[in-house]
Protein backbone atom coordinates (compact mmCIF):
# COMPACT_ATOMS: atom_id res chain seq x y z
CA UNK A 1 0.00 0.00 0.00
CA UNK A 2 1.26 3.45 -0.82
CA UNK A 3 1.39 6.14 1.82
CA UNK A 4 -1.60 7.85 0.29
CA UNK A 5 -3.91 4.84 0.10
CA UNK A 6 -2.88 3.90 3.61
CA UNK A 7 -3.73 7.39 4.87
CA UNK A 8 -7.06 7.26 3.02
CA UNK A 9 -7.93 3.88 4.46
CA UNK A 10 -7.00 5.05 7.98
CA UNK A 11 -9.17 8.14 7.55
CA UNK A 12 -12.03 5.94 6.34
CA UNK A 13 -11.68 3.74 9.43
CA UNK A 14 -11.85 6.80 11.71
CA UNK A 15 -14.79 8.24 9.74
CA UNK A 16 -16.64 4.99 10.15
CA UNK A 17 -16.09 5.09 13.90
CA UNK A 18 -17.50 8.63 14.09
CA UNK A 19 -20.51 7.77 11.97
CA UNK A 20 -21.32 4.78 14.15
CA UNK A 21 -21.39 7.16 17.09
CA UNK A 22 -23.84 9.47 15.32
CA UNK A 23 -26.09 6.48 14.76
CA UNK A 24 -25.80 5.27 18.37
CA UNK A 25 -26.39 8.66 19.97
CA UNK A 26 -29.40 9.90 18.01
CA UNK A 27 -30.02 12.70 20.53
CA UNK A 28 -26.98 14.41 19.10
CA UNK A 29 -28.47 14.46 15.63
CA UNK A 30 -31.90 15.44 16.90
CA UNK A 31 -30.55 18.55 18.55
CA UNK A 32 -28.24 19.52 15.71
CA UNK A 33 -31.27 19.45 13.45
CA UNK A 34 -33.76 21.05 15.82
CA UNK A 35 -31.60 24.12 16.18
CA UNK A 36 -31.72 25.15 12.52
CA UNK A 37 -35.46 24.46 12.40
CA UNK A 38 -35.82 26.78 15.37
CA UNK A 39 -33.78 29.45 13.61
CA UNK A 40 -35.82 29.18 10.41
CA UNK A 41 -39.09 29.56 12.32
CA UNK A 42 -37.85 32.33 14.63
CA UNK A 43 -36.43 34.50 11.93
CA UNK A 44 -39.21 33.85 9.44
CA UNK A 45 -42.04 34.66 11.83
CA UNK A 46 -40.50 36.93 14.48
CA UNK A 47 -38.41 39.18 12.23
CA UNK A 48 -39.97 38.32 8.87
CA UNK A 49 -42.82 40.82 9.08
CA UNK A 50 -40.85 43.57 10.76
CA UNK A 51 -37.87 43.47 8.48
CA UNK A 52 -39.57 43.43 5.09
CA UNK A 53 -37.54 43.18 1.91
CA UNK A 54 -34.57 45.21 3.18
CA UNK A 55 -34.20 46.81 -0.22
CA UNK A 56 -33.14 43.50 -1.76
CA UNK A 57 -36.27 43.03 -3.78
CA UNK A 58 -36.75 39.59 -2.28
CA UNK A 59 -39.24 38.45 0.35
CA UNK A 60 -37.43 38.19 3.72
CA UNK A 61 -38.13 34.49 4.15
CA UNK A 62 -36.47 33.85 0.86
CA UNK A 63 -33.59 36.20 1.69
CA UNK A 64 -33.16 34.58 5.08
CA UNK A 65 -32.76 30.90 4.24
CA UNK A 66 -29.31 31.12 2.65
CA UNK A 67 -28.15 33.15 5.66
CA UNK A 68 -29.42 30.52 8.09
CA UNK A 69 -27.80 27.80 5.99
CA UNK A 70 -24.47 29.60 6.21
CA UNK A 71 -24.78 30.26 9.91
CA UNK A 72 -25.77 26.70 10.70
CA UNK A 73 -22.99 24.99 8.77
CA UNK A 74 -20.40 27.31 10.30
CA UNK A 75 -21.77 26.57 13.77
CA UNK A 76 -21.82 22.90 12.84
CA UNK A 77 -18.07 23.01 12.35
CA UNK A 78 -17.55 23.71 16.06
CA UNK A 79 -18.61 20.11 16.60
CA UNK A 80 -15.27 19.12 15.08
CA UNK A 81 -13.37 20.99 17.78
CA UNK A 82 -15.66 19.71 20.50
CA UNK A 83 -15.23 16.08 19.46
CA UNK A 84 -11.47 16.34 19.13
CA UNK A 85 -11.14 17.91 22.58
CA UNK A 86 -13.34 15.13 23.92
CA UNK A 87 -11.20 12.42 22.30
CA UNK A 88 -8.13 14.09 23.70
CA UNK A 89 -9.57 14.26 27.18
CA UNK A 90 -10.62 10.62 27.13
CA UNK A 91 -7.16 9.47 26.06
CA UNK A 92 -8.42 8.33 22.70
CA UNK A 93 -5.92 10.46 20.80
CA UNK A 94 -3.13 8.89 22.88
CA UNK A 95 -4.26 5.49 21.69
CA UNK A 96 -4.41 6.63 18.05
CA UNK A 97 -1.01 8.25 18.32
CA UNK A 98 0.68 5.06 19.50
CA UNK A 99 -0.70 3.16 16.49
CA UNK A 100 1.30 3.00 13.26
CA UNK A 101 -1.46 4.90 11.46
CA UNK A 102 -1.17 7.96 9.26
CA UNK A 103 -0.77 11.06 11.46
CA UNK A 104 -3.40 13.02 9.53
CA UNK A 105 -6.01 10.24 9.46
CA UNK A 106 -7.60 11.08 12.80
CA UNK A 107 -8.22 14.69 11.70
CA UNK A 108 -9.35 13.84 8.18
CA UNK A 109 -11.67 11.18 9.57
CA UNK A 110 -13.14 13.65 12.03
CA UNK A 111 -13.65 16.50 9.57
CA UNK A 112 -15.10 14.17 6.93
CA UNK A 113 -17.67 12.68 9.28
CA UNK A 114 -18.65 16.19 10.32
CA UNK A 115 -19.45 16.96 6.68
CA UNK A 116 -22.09 14.27 7.02
CA UNK A 117 -23.58 16.15 9.98
CA UNK A 118 -23.75 19.31 7.93
CA UNK A 119 -25.40 17.52 4.99
CA UNK A 120 -28.15 16.32 7.34
CA UNK A 121 -28.54 19.85 8.73
CA UNK A 122 -28.84 21.28 5.21
CA UNK A 123 -31.50 18.76 4.24
CA UNK A 124 -33.53 19.43 7.38
CA UNK A 125 -33.23 23.18 6.98
CA UNK A 126 -34.14 22.98 3.32
CA UNK A 127 -37.30 21.08 4.17
CA UNK A 128 -38.31 23.48 6.94
CA UNK A 129 -37.53 26.36 4.57
CA UNK A 130 -39.91 24.90 2.02
CA UNK A 131 -42.57 24.72 4.70
CA UNK A 132 -42.30 28.43 5.53
CA UNK A 133 -42.41 29.42 1.89
CA UNK A 134 -38.81 29.37 0.62
CA UNK A 135 -38.37 28.09 -2.92
CA UNK A 136 -35.41 27.19 -5.11
CA UNK A 137 -35.93 29.33 -8.18
CA UNK A 138 -32.86 28.35 -10.17
CA UNK A 139 -31.82 25.02 -11.65
CA UNK A 140 -31.34 21.97 -9.45
CA UNK A 141 -27.70 21.83 -10.51
CA UNK A 142 -27.12 25.43 -9.40
CA UNK A 143 -28.82 24.70 -6.10
CA UNK A 144 -26.54 21.74 -5.60
CA UNK A 145 -23.62 24.02 -6.35
CA UNK A 146 -24.89 26.40 -3.67
CA UNK A 147 -24.99 23.57 -1.13
CA UNK A 148 -21.50 22.58 -2.19
CA UNK A 149 -20.10 26.08 -1.57
CA UNK A 150 -21.65 25.97 1.90
CA UNK A 151 -20.19 22.55 2.67
CA UNK A 152 -16.72 23.34 1.36
CA UNK A 153 -16.54 26.51 3.46
CA UNK A 154 -17.80 24.68 6.55
CA UNK A 155 -15.24 21.96 5.93
CA UNK A 156 -12.46 24.54 5.90
CA UNK A 157 -13.73 26.12 9.12
CA UNK A 158 -13.86 22.71 10.79
CA UNK A 159 -10.06 22.48 10.35
CA UNK A 160 -9.75 25.76 12.25
CA UNK A 161 -11.92 24.21 14.94
CA UNK A 162 -9.80 21.06 14.90
CA UNK A 163 -6.76 23.16 15.81
CA UNK A 164 -8.79 24.98 18.48
CA UNK A 165 -9.88 21.64 19.93
CA UNK A 166 -6.29 20.39 20.10
CA UNK A 167 -5.10 23.58 21.78
CA UNK A 168 -8.00 24.21 24.15
CA UNK A 169 -8.45 20.56 25.21
CA UNK A 170 -11.74 21.00 27.06
CA UNK A 171 -14.87 20.33 25.00
CA UNK A 172 -17.04 22.85 26.84
CA UNK A 173 -14.42 25.57 26.50
CA UNK A 174 -14.16 24.88 22.77
CA UNK A 175 -17.88 25.51 22.51
CA UNK A 176 -17.84 28.72 24.50
CA UNK A 177 -14.68 30.08 22.93
CA UNK A 178 -15.84 29.46 19.38
CA UNK A 179 -19.24 30.93 20.14
CA UNK A 180 -17.85 34.40 20.83
CA UNK A 181 -16.03 34.37 17.49
CA UNK A 182 -18.62 32.66 15.35
CA UNK A 183 -21.62 34.60 16.56
CA UNK A 184 -20.35 38.00 15.40
CA UNK A 185 -18.84 36.41 12.31
CA UNK A 186 -22.20 35.11 11.20
CA UNK A 187 -24.17 38.20 12.28
CA UNK A 188 -21.91 40.97 10.97
CA UNK A 189 -22.65 39.78 7.47
CA UNK A 190 -25.42 39.71 4.92
CA UNK A 191 -26.94 36.64 6.55
CA UNK A 192 -29.96 38.23 8.22
CA UNK A 193 -29.86 41.87 7.18
CA UNK A 194 -28.81 43.89 4.20
CA UNK A 195 -25.21 44.91 5.06
CA UNK A 196 -25.78 48.34 3.54
CA UNK A 197 -27.83 49.19 6.61
CA UNK A 198 -24.79 48.63 8.90
CA UNK A 199 -22.63 51.49 10.23
CA UNK A 200 -19.25 52.18 8.50
CA UNK A 201 -16.62 49.77 9.85
CA UNK A 202 -19.12 46.97 10.39
CA UNK A 203 -20.31 47.42 6.83
CA UNK A 204 -16.77 47.03 5.48
CA UNK A 205 -16.30 43.96 7.64
CA UNK A 206 -19.59 42.52 6.41
CA UNK A 207 -18.65 43.15 2.79
CA UNK A 208 -15.39 41.21 3.05
CA UNK A 209 -16.56 38.65 5.57
CA UNK A 210 -16.40 35.25 3.84
CA UNK A 211 -19.66 34.30 5.54
CA UNK A 212 -21.27 37.05 3.46
CA UNK A 213 -19.84 35.76 0.20
CA UNK A 214 -20.83 32.20 1.06
CA UNK A 215 -24.36 33.42 1.80
CA UNK A 216 -24.43 35.51 -1.35
CA UNK A 217 -23.19 32.55 -3.41
CA UNK A 218 -25.91 30.30 -2.00
CA UNK A 219 -28.57 32.97 -2.52
CA UNK A 220 -27.61 33.42 -6.15
CA UNK A 221 -27.37 29.70 -6.84
CA UNK A 222 -30.73 29.05 -5.17
CA UNK A 223 -32.21 31.82 -7.32
CA UNK A 224 -33.16 33.88 -4.27
CA UNK A 225 -31.93 37.20 -5.62
CA UNK A 226 -33.64 39.89 -7.66
CA UNK A 227 -31.61 41.12 -10.67
CA UNK A 228 -33.08 44.59 -10.17
CA UNK A 229 -31.38 44.78 -6.79
CA UNK A 230 -27.73 43.82 -7.33
CA UNK A 231 -25.44 43.15 -4.34
CA UNK A 232 -23.11 45.92 -3.07
CA UNK A 233 -20.43 46.89 -5.53
CA UNK A 234 -17.52 45.12 -3.83
CA UNK A 235 -15.49 42.39 -5.52
CA UNK A 236 -16.17 39.85 -2.79
CA UNK A 237 -19.93 40.05 -3.26
CA UNK A 238 -19.80 40.49 -7.02
CA UNK A 239 -17.85 37.21 -7.31
CA UNK A 240 -19.17 35.38 -4.26
CA UNK A 241 -18.47 31.81 -5.44
CA UNK A 242 -14.89 32.51 -6.38
CA UNK A 243 -14.25 34.60 -3.26
CA UNK A 244 -15.74 31.87 -1.03
CA UNK A 245 -13.66 29.15 -2.66
CA UNK A 246 -10.47 31.21 -2.39
CA UNK A 247 -11.15 31.69 1.32
CA UNK A 248 -11.84 28.01 1.80
CA UNK A 249 -8.64 27.07 -0.01
CA UNK A 250 -6.57 29.54 2.01
CA UNK A 251 -8.00 28.38 5.32
CA UNK A 252 -7.30 24.76 4.41
CA UNK A 253 -3.78 25.55 3.21
CA UNK A 254 -2.97 27.19 6.53
CA UNK A 255 -4.92 25.12 9.04
CA UNK A 256 -4.54 21.57 7.73
CA UNK A 257 -0.74 21.59 8.27
CA UNK A 258 -1.07 23.50 11.56
CA UNK A 259 -3.65 21.08 12.94
CA UNK A 260 -1.73 17.98 11.80
CA UNK A 261 1.45 19.34 13.36
CA UNK A 262 -0.32 20.12 16.62
CA UNK A 263 -1.93 16.67 16.62
CA UNK A 264 1.48 15.03 16.45
CA UNK A 265 2.64 16.75 19.61
CA UNK A 266 -0.57 16.64 21.60
CA UNK A 267 -1.14 14.18 24.39
CA UNK A 268 -3.68 14.01 27.17
CA UNK A 269 -2.79 15.45 30.54
Amino acid sequence: MSTFTRAASDAATVTRRNLIKIRRVPDLLVFTTLQPIMFVLLFAYVFGGAIGTQGTGVDYKEFLIAGIFAQTVVFGSTFTGYSIAEDLQKGFIDRFRTLPMSPSAMLFGRTLSDVFNNVISLVVMGLSGLVVGWRIRGSALDALGGALVLLVFAYAISWVMALVGLLVRTPEVVNNASFIVIFPMTFIANTFVNPETLPGPLRTFAYWNPVSSVTQAARELFGNTNPDFPPPDVWSLQHPVLYSLIWSALVLAVFVPLAVRQYQRTTSR
Binding site: R16, R17, G91, F92, D94, P100
Partner: peptide
Amino acid sequence: RTIGVSGQYAAVDEYLTGFENLDMVGRLYH
Protein backbone atom coordinates in the same frame (compact mmCIF):
# COMPACT_ATOMS: atom_id res chain seq x y z
CA ARG B 1 4.88 -0.83 14.75
CA THR B 2 6.58 -2.79 17.51
CA ILE B 3 4.76 -1.60 20.64
CA GLY B 4 1.41 -2.05 22.30
CA VAL B 5 0.23 0.56 24.80
CA SER B 6 -2.52 0.58 27.35
CA GLY B 7 -2.92 3.88 29.18
CA GLN B 8 -3.88 4.72 32.67
CA TYR B 9 -7.56 4.73 31.95
CA ALA B 10 -9.31 2.74 29.29
CA ALA B 11 -9.07 4.54 25.95
CA VAL B 12 -11.94 2.65 24.42
CA ASP B 13 -14.84 4.16 22.53
CA GLU B 14 -17.98 3.94 24.65
CA TYR B 15 -20.36 4.02 21.74
CA LEU B 16 -18.68 1.24 19.81
CA THR B 17 -19.09 -2.39 20.75
CA GLY B 18 -16.14 -4.30 22.13
CA PHE B 19 -15.74 -5.98 18.76
CA GLU B 20 -15.87 -2.71 16.84
CA ASN B 21 -13.21 -1.19 19.10
CA LEU B 22 -10.74 -4.01 18.47
CA ASP B 23 -11.65 -4.29 14.80
CA MET B 24 -10.89 -0.60 14.37
CA VAL B 25 -7.51 -0.92 16.08
CA GLY B 26 -6.69 -3.92 13.87
CA ARG B 27 -7.47 -1.93 10.75
CA LEU B 28 -5.34 0.96 11.96
CA TYR B 29 -2.47 -1.51 12.44
CA HIS B 30 -3.12 -2.38 8.76
